[in-house]
Design a protein around this nucleic acid. Sequence first.
DNA 1: TCGCTTGGCTAATGGGATTAGCTAAAAGCT
DNA 2: AGCTTTTAGCTAATCCCATTAGCCAAGCGA
Lengths: 190, 190
Amino acid sequence: MSVPRSGLQTDTITAAGAALADEIGFTELTMGRLAERLGVRTPSLYKHIAGQDDLNRRIAALAHTEIADAIGTATQGRAGRDALAAAAHALRDFVLTHPGRYAATLGLTPIGPGDPVAIAASRGLGPFEAVLRGYDISPETMTHALRALRSLFHGFADLQATGGFQWSTDVGESFEWLIDLIDQGLRQAA
Amino acid sequence: MSVPRSGLQTDTITAAGAALADEIGFTELTMGRLAERLGVRTPSLYKHIAGQDDLNRRIAALAHTEIADAIGTATQGRAGRDALAAAAHALRDFVLTHPGRYAATLGLTPIGPGDPVAIAASRGLGPFEAVLRGYDISPETMTHALRALRSLFHGFADLQATGGFQWSTDVGESFEWLIDLIDQGLRQAA
DNA sequence: TCGCTTGGCTAATGGGATTAGCTAAAAGCT
DNA sequence: AGCTTTTAGCTAATCCCATTAGCCAAGCGA
């Protein structure tokens, strides 16, 4: 029986999985559907990835890297409130454009220090640190500020993604308001 | 064949499901395991709840109500930064004590206006509004402030749950710092 | 006591993840 | 080119889970 190779690669599969998750929702992403999308039978995927959990983690790591890149690019050459706003908008745009891969980053317990997810996530803090450098944050409070930024941004992104639309007032306006709130808070902290 | 009644009720099942989710993790909560916990066969659950999604929503609604109660109680008689800190701590304690039912509240798309989840969630905003009343927030910015608070709490809960332990600096300290940040931001906004 | 409703149960279906084992396609070597 | 080895597809089979159908006793009210 002739079975032509389709040239699958781990990265190809991860990318396709991320794209599919964006289309149909992360919870709907299934090994079977992904295989179908790739024109291949389900078990074939196991030659390249260890299983569903492995796939999810790879997508999450990919998303973390992409988010870091997006924020890094957006904040280039900016400082202070400008950089803060640019970072916030970049993250929000990413969540709106790629809801599936963003969802993959939520609720994952990092396994160990070598976990690609943990590594990608910590690398993702770099751009945040760059933003904070525009405020006079003392080194010992830098960690706190980093965590605060991460918490607020992700909290709002999540709000935007899941239930934001249930209120009438424009979410974008609230977003700007939140940016100001953080900006003022950071100024005080400096 | 004799089959004694076990006296199951929708509320009993919901409560047991929430408790089990706290123990083994929300994603591990399964109809089968819940049935086993209740000493009953899986299909029997369907006489009281419509299915897994229904169960999840009931647990989420329960969690929302409990969170609102906890924050309401904690902020009784407090105002300003005091109330803010009390609310934040109450939520954090809840997330730490009941990780499973908290996870149930995440990533749920409210179905319609009559959705119990949506109702419980919006009722949950009451205590937040009470906290904000301690700051001089103008009525038109109240919505923004509410969303900001929600984002903040959400984001921090996520931080606490997922990646908190991967950094060395004490998370509790960062928590206090974050509360100060918001407090100062809200003061400025007033 | 007699029936009717109800809440257990077993059996069956369908779908998803995953593993075992087969075979042909590539790739490498002489 | 021909031979060998590795690799990447495939089919078949297993297991677990959610859900539905249909049976039957428990308990309640007349």
